[in-house]
Simulated assay, not measured.
Amino acid sequence: MSASTLTRIVRGEGPGLLLAHGAGGGALPNYGTVLDGLARHHRVVAPDYPGSGSTPRATAPLSLDALADELVATAVEEGLERFAMAGYSLGVPTAIRAAVRHPDRVTALVLTAGFARLNPRMLLALRVWRDLLGDPDRLAAFMALIAVGAPTLDAMGQDELDRALAESAAGVPPGTADHIDLAEGIDVRADLTRIEVPTLVVSTVYDVLATPAHHREVAAGIPGARLAELPTGHLPFAEAPAEWLALMRDFLAAL
Score class of each variant (00 low, 15 high):
99 A>H: 08
48 D>W: 07
51 G>V: 07
133 L>C: 02
95 A>T: 13
82 R>S: 12
41 H>Y: 11
87 G>E: 03
112 T>I: 13
35 L>N: 00
65 D>Q: 14
68 A>V: 04
139 L>Q: 04
44 V>R: 01
63 S>D: 15
131 D>L: 04
134 G>I: 09
64 L>W: 15
86 A>Q: 12
102 H>D: 10
130 R>C: 06
116 A>C: 07
122 M>G: 13
71 L>G: 11
111 L>I: 14
137 D>H: 06
57 R>H: 10
129 W>L: 05
112 T>W: 05
118 L>E: 12
79 G>R: 04
136 P>D: 06
139 L>K: 00
95 A>E: 05
98 A>S: 05
67 L>V: 11
35 L>R: 01
43 R>F: 09
41 H>V: 02
93 P>Y: 11
132 L>M: 07
67 L>H: 04
49 Y>I: 07
37 G>D: 00
95 A>Q: 09
31 Y>I: 02
79 G>L: 14
60 A>E: 15
135 D>V: 05
101 R>E: 03
83 F>R: 05
86 A>L: 14
79 G>A: 07
31 Y>N: 00
117 R>C: 11
132 L>N: 01
40 R>Y: 05
139 L>D: 00
57 R>N: 00
101 R>V: 14
108 A>E: 10
30 N>E: 01
85 M>D: 00
49 Y>W: 15
51 G>Y: 06
128 V>H: 13
75 A>R: 03
95 A>K: 03
104 D>K: 04
77 E>V: 10
